[in-house]
Amino acid sequence: MTPHLHKDYVGAKFGMWLFLFTELILFGGLFILYAVYLSRYPAAFIAAGAELDLRFGAANTLILLTSSLFVALSITALRLGKTRQSLWLLAATVASALLFLVNKFFEWSAKIQHGLYPASPELQAREIGETVYFNLYYLTTGLHGLHVLIGAVVIVWVMVFIRQQKVHRDDWVILENAGLYWHLVDLIWIFLFPLYYLVL
């Protein structure tokens, strides 16, 4: 890998987009199941959805949208040569990711304390559709949480690269791709939020 080798930015970005499609379709499998089970148990889904705390969901939506803004801004900052600013913006993104996960942790704990976890006696006493809802809820948000974690790790890794001058104003595609990944995490949440917190 000689540094003088021509670097194909469009190719690198296109490859990343293709990877994002695979992530989209990975979650797509869960969306298919959600859609099928919602059509089968509409009443139970509404009842179970009312159990979720809208405040947690809304807060996490704000956090992710804002973190997406930070990443987008950091790319512009880096390309304008404001490396320090770019690093701070990325640090803010990672902080948002952690905040999101902490929030999620408290949300899950509250649910579990109320006896709402898979195969719990509380759920077994209710209509079976609510079991499906909470199974889906835990698996989907769990998988999404995993992606938040991965995204945060990727961003930290890019920050190291920026500090080492491997990523800079004339060679930013790694940051751009990491940003694309982070936006995907945000995109998935944009759909999860109404599907789980706003069903009525």
Partner: peptide, 25 residues
């Protein structure tokens, strides 16, 4: 490969989840 394989990934993951965690979709 790009557009179909992720469905397999989520499907086998869900079977694993049911075997290991008992959450059966």
């Amino acid at each position: 490969q790009i557009l179909a394989t992720p469905v397999l990934a989520i499907t086998v993951s869900l079977v694993m989840v049911e075997r290991l965690l008992g959450i059966g979709l």
